[in-house]
């Protein structure tokens, strides 16, 4: 036990020094004014909850998460199940799914601009005149980008989970007359529940990285539907609203923690 602790100690020290302590400072700052001199109690939290921009950003972020996570999980699972059946070409397809993850963000942004600009390829192909990034479609472009980028990652995780299911179970089920769908719902899904928890949490955390493309394409103030929590925090930092930023960050972290704990509870019950 002691040996294990000592081996973990350097990394733990790094996590404490560069993650936990700074976060503790953020929590502290959320109860003080901008310069950190005067204690203001819960005033910053009150201000944040009454702030229209925060409510907009939170609503967009929740909506984004609620749309993207189920979509990503479902589509990646379907892709993984289909891939598993592939014999020769399977590894090539697997690599193709991972290519989007390897493309740098700046290149993805360029791609976005080429595709979704008012004079872009999409409008050209279908003779449309939609300004994709400055309309309600912007949200769906963001969703599409998130799915495109993260699908491969989840597919790999699902494949790992699928590989852990013993083939004998399927054989036994087929002997008993179970069809493919019955096998999927009665054998595959229940055995993938542990993976589902991991994939859901990781996908949820990855959903926050969608900000990068949105910011590089549309700047500090994108279309309202794309305005996420990170946009708000970025802008608050520019305006030196550190008090609100700290309170917002604490609220954000608390929400994520709550969600992860709820998920964990739900899985443990299963």
């Amino acid at each position: 036990m002691r040996k294990g602790f000592f081996f973990v100690l350097p990394s733990l020290t790094g996590v404490i020094l560069f993650l936990l302590l700074p976060f503790a400072d953020v929590v502290r700052r959320s109860f003080f004014d901008v310069l950190g001199n005067a204690f203001v109690g819960l005033r910053n939290y009150q201000t944040v909850f009454q702030n229209g921009a925060f409510l907009q950003a939170a609503s967009n972020t929740l909506r984004f998460t609620a749309v993207c996570i189920p979509l990503l999980v479902t589509v990646s699972l379907a892709a993984a199940v289909l891939l598993k059946e592939q014999k020769g070409m399977g590894s090539i397809f697997k690599s193709m799914y991972l290519v989007p993850m390897a493309i740098p963000v700046a290149s993805v942004v360029l791609l976005w601009k080429l595709l979704f600009d008012r004079s872009g390829i999409l409008n050209g192909l279908f003779s449309l005149e939609i300004d994709w990034m400055n309309s309600e479609y912007a949200f769906w472009v963001l969703v599409f980008s998130y799915l495109w980028k993260n699908l491969g990652y989840d597919v790999i995780l699902w494949l790992a989970g699928l590989a852990g299911i013993a083939p004998e179970i399927y054989e036994a089920a087929r002997v008993d007359g179970a069809g493919q769908w019955r096998c999927f719902f009665s054998i595959t899904l229940p055995n993938l529940l542990p993976s589902l928890y991991t994939i859901t949490v990781l996908s949820f955390l990855n959903s926050f990285k969608a900000f990068r493309e949105a910011y590089l394409v549309a700047g500090d103030y994108p279309h309202q539907s794309m305005y996420l929590m990170q946009h708000l925090f970025n802008n608050w930092f520019r305006e030196l609203s550190l008090d609100k930023l700290a309170a917002g960050a604490v609220i954000n972290a608390a929400a994520i923690l709550l969600l992860v704990m709820l998920l964990r509870r739900a899985w443990e019950k299963e």
Binding site: N51, G52, A53, Y221, H223, N235, E239
Partner: peptide, 10 residues
Amino acid sequence: SQKMSLYLAE
């Protein structure tokens, strides 16, 4: 209007 609203709301 949209962008300015966000900016001023912040």
